[in-house]
């Protein structure tokens, strides 16, 4: 877990925001309380954040803060509600580069439900498949298995922090969805190809949508 965290100081140096901004955003609930992880270090107590989540969130805030007031931003970021209303056409998704062409043509028809529109949930699944494809970890066919897994089980895990595990044993691909934090132990023939927190994906996807 250690390398998944970023210290407050490092975060401020990387993003160029100030202490005041960070606390202000926290007060406005743009950054959830749970992301402030307090730990003892040799210099006393330090605050850490989940690296991927906080960086994506701060990018989102910085991009949007000129157009929206902080209160509007808070409601936009806090609930996925605004996003759950989103319906996008295939063309719009490719044009805005949310999901690549390849993933779209391979899986677009798999997840599509009503008409020609994709919901936030479906987009998320496509985006997950796209991310793994882009890393070169997963073949196109395995992606279909992933999408079926997500479609079948993600509903149960909505709103809970949850991680996607992609493992292989003797060339056979397996997908696991587990509520986090979960500790999974595999036998030695198993290779953990990828582990993705769905929360991170949601955050990144929101960034692309906004």
């Amino acid at each position: 877990m250690e390398d998944d965290l970023i210290s407050k100081k490092e975060l401020l140096d990387l993003t160029g925001i100030s202490y005041g901004q960070l606390y202000r955003w926290k007060r406005k609930q743009l950054i959830p309380e749970e992301w402030f992880i307090r730990k003892s270090t040799f210099t006393g107590q330090e605050t850490f954040f989940p690296r991927m989540l906080i960086q994506a969130r701060i990018r989102n805030i910085l991009n949007m803060k000129d157009d929206l007031s902080l209160d509007e931003l808070a409601s936009r970021l806090a609930d996925a509600e605004g996003y759950s209303e989103i319906r996008l056409t295939r063309e719009a998704i490719i044009e805005r580069n949310i999901v690549t062409d390849i993933a779209m043509s391979a899986y677009g028809t798999e997840v599509q439900s009503k008409g020609d529109l994709y919901s936030f949930g479906q987009l998320l699944h496509l985006y997950a498949a796209d991310t793994l494809l882009a890393k070169g970890d997963m073949s196109l066919d395995e992606g279909k298995l992933l999408l079926r897994t997500l479609e079948k089980h993600a509903g149960v895990l909505t709103g809970k922090p949850c991680e996607l595990y992609f493992i292989r044993k003797m060339g056979v691909a397996l997908f696991l969805l587990a509520p986090s934090p979960a500790e999974l132990y595999f036998d030695e023939g198993v290779r953990l190809v990828a582990k993705v927190a769905l929360g991170d994906l949601i955050e990144q996807l929101k960034g692309r949508l906004s």
Binding site: K9, S18, Y19, G20, Q21, Y23, G44, Q45
Partner: peptide, 19 residues
């Protein structure tokens, strides 16, 4: 223990860390 902020103007203050 810790005081963090943009503009800090302190008097009669004891803190472990001021940033």
């Amino acid at each position: 223990k810790v005081i963090e902020g943009d503009d800090l103007d302190l008097e009669y203050t004891n803190a472990d860390v001021v940033r």
